Amino acid sequence: MLFLWVKAFHIMAVVAWFAVLFYLPRLFVYHASCDDVAGRERFKIMERKLYRGIGAPSMILVWTLGAWMAYLNWDYYKTQGWFHAKLTLVFLLTGYHHMCGAYVKKFARDFEPPSHVFFRWFNEVPVLFLAAIVIMVVVRPF
């Protein structure tokens, strides 16, 4: 029963984390297109609060609860190829999360951002991760 409780909270943390990973790069699109000082300042606040207030805590919860689930059933998970592939994807997604954090810091320092078109493409990356991770967990192709 403990495993199911941990799994439920893990899924909630994943949903919160992906909400940030979908919305934060969208804010970057708007921020990169913004021409007025007041608007740019507003985006800085929104980006910082989203990343630090929701993004980082939810990512930490995803990793903590995921590690707890793995610990509870390690004999099973250690032999599953899909699990190792999923962990690799989550590790790479964590790198994407930190890239977002780097952009939050750069925007806070008023750097000259890449075009909004770059951020429109950057915004699509978490969709690919989500699809691949869900397939690993649900389909378990190997």
Rank of each mutant, 00 (worst) to 15 (best):
A131Q: 03
A32I: 03
F111P: 12
R40A: 10
N73I: 05
M59K: 08
I54W: 07
A131Y: 05
V104Q: 01
G55F: 10
V134N: 00
M46E: 15
A8M: 14
W74P: 10
S115I: 13
F43R: 00
G55D: 02
W5Q: 09
V15N: 10
A16H: 07
V90W: 00
Y30G: 08
S33M: 13
M69P: 04
G95C: 03
A8K: 07
L93W: 04
V37T: 10
M99E: 08
M69H: 03
P126L: 00
A56Y: 15
V20D: 05
Q80N: 06
K86F: 08
A102N: 11
P25W: 00
K86Y: 04
G39M: 10
Y76R: 12
L92C: 06
T88Y: 09
R40S: 08
P25T: 01
Y71R: 06
H84A: 02
E47Q: 11
T79H: 15
T94L: 09
V20L: 11
F142R: 04
E112D: 11
A85L: 13
V90I: 08
R48I: 14
L130K: 00
L72V: 08
V20S: 05
F122T: 04
P57M: 03
F18W: 09
G101I: 01
V138Q: 04
V14E: 07
F129D: 00
V29T: 12
P57T: 02
K44Q: 13
R109Y: 13
F83W: 03
V29K: 01
I45D: 07
I135T: 06
S33K: 15
L4A: 12
T88S: 13
N73D: 09
K106H: 09
V117R: 11
L2Y: 14
T88C: 12
A56V: 15
F22T: 02
P114I: 05
F142L: 14
A8L: 15
F119K: 00
D110Y: 13
N123H: 07
